[in-house]
Every structure is written in structure tokens, then in C-alpha cells.
Measured scan of single mutants.
Amino acid sequence: TEDEKKIQELLKRANGDVSKAEKLAQSQGNEELARRLREYANK
């Protein structure tokens, strides 16, 4: 999905570090994506 692409892109930029990727999403003002990242990471 589009969200998964965004999540994978963020994870790439954060070198696979979920908490960093989450902070990136939040810094972009994207709380929804940050929440999805957390769920994605907890799979």
C-alpha cells in the first residue's frame, strides 16, 4: 500500500531504526504515519 511504501522509505532513511523513523514521521507532522510505523514494527 501507499502507507507501507512511506513506512519503508522512512525506515530506509532511519537505517531500519523504528524509533528514529517514528520521530522522522512526527517531525513531518505525520502522527498517523508515526502510529502506523509503531504498529508495523510490532508485527
Rank of each mutant, 00 (worst) to 15 (best):
A21D: 00
K20A: 13
L37P: 00
R36G: 04
S27I: 11
R36M: 15
Q28H: 07
A14L: 05
E2V: 10
L24E: 08
E2A: 11
A21N: 00
A41C: 11
R36P: 03
D17R: 02
V18M: 06
N30V: 03
R36C: 10
A25Y: 01
Y40R: 04
A34N: 02
E39P: 01
G29Q: 04
K6Y: 14
A25N: 00
E39L: 05
A21F: 01
D3R: 06
Y40K: 03
I7R: 01
S27N: 09
N15W: 07
K5R: 14
N15A: 07
E9S: 05
G29D: 04
R38G: 03
G29I: 02
E39R: 03
K20C: 12
E2R: 08
N30C: 09
A14G: 02
I7T: 02
L11C: 12
S19W: 14
T1N: 13
E39F: 03
D3G: 07
N42Y: 10
A25S: 02
Y40M: 12
E2Q: 10
A34Q: 03
A41E: 05
K12P: 00
K5F: 11
K20L: 15
K5E: 12
E31S: 10
Q8R: 14
L11T: 00
L24K: 03
A34T: 03
A14M: 08
A21P: 00
K20M: 13
S27K: 09
Y40L: 11
R38Y: 04
D17G: 01
S27H: 09
Q28A: 11
V18D: 01
N15D: 09
R38S: 05
E4L: 14
K43A: 11
K6P: 05
L11M: 06
L24P: 00
A41M: 14
Q8I: 14
R35W: 07
G16E: 02
T1P: 12
A25Q: 02
R38F: 03
D17T: 02
N30T: 04
A14P: 01
K43H: 11
K20P: 01
L11A: 01
T1V: 12
K5A: 13
A21K: 00
K12F: 10
A21G: 02
K23E: 12
N30P: 00
K23R: 10
L37G: 00
A25R: 01
G29H: 05
K12E: 10
S19Q: 12
V18H: 05
E32T: 06
A21W: 02
A41N: 06
A14H: 05
R38I: 06
Q8S: 06
L37D: 01
L10Q: 02
E32C: 07
N30Q: 10
G16K: 02
L10K: 00
S27D: 14
A41W: 14
A14D: 01
E32A: 08
E39A: 07
E31A: 10
E39C: 09
G29C: 03
S19I: 13
A14T: 14
Y40D: 02
K43N: 11
A25K: 01
K12C: 14
N15F: 07
T1W: 14
R13D: 08
L33V: 04
K12Y: 09
K23S: 08
K23G: 06
K20F: 11
R35Q: 13
L33D: 04
Q28S: 09
G16L: 03
N30S: 08
A25W: 02
E4A: 10
A41K: 08
Q8F: 10
Q28P: 02
Y40E: 03
S27M: 14
A34G: 05
A34S: 04
R13F: 10
R38T: 03
Q8D: 06
K20G: 05
K5V: 11
A14R: 00
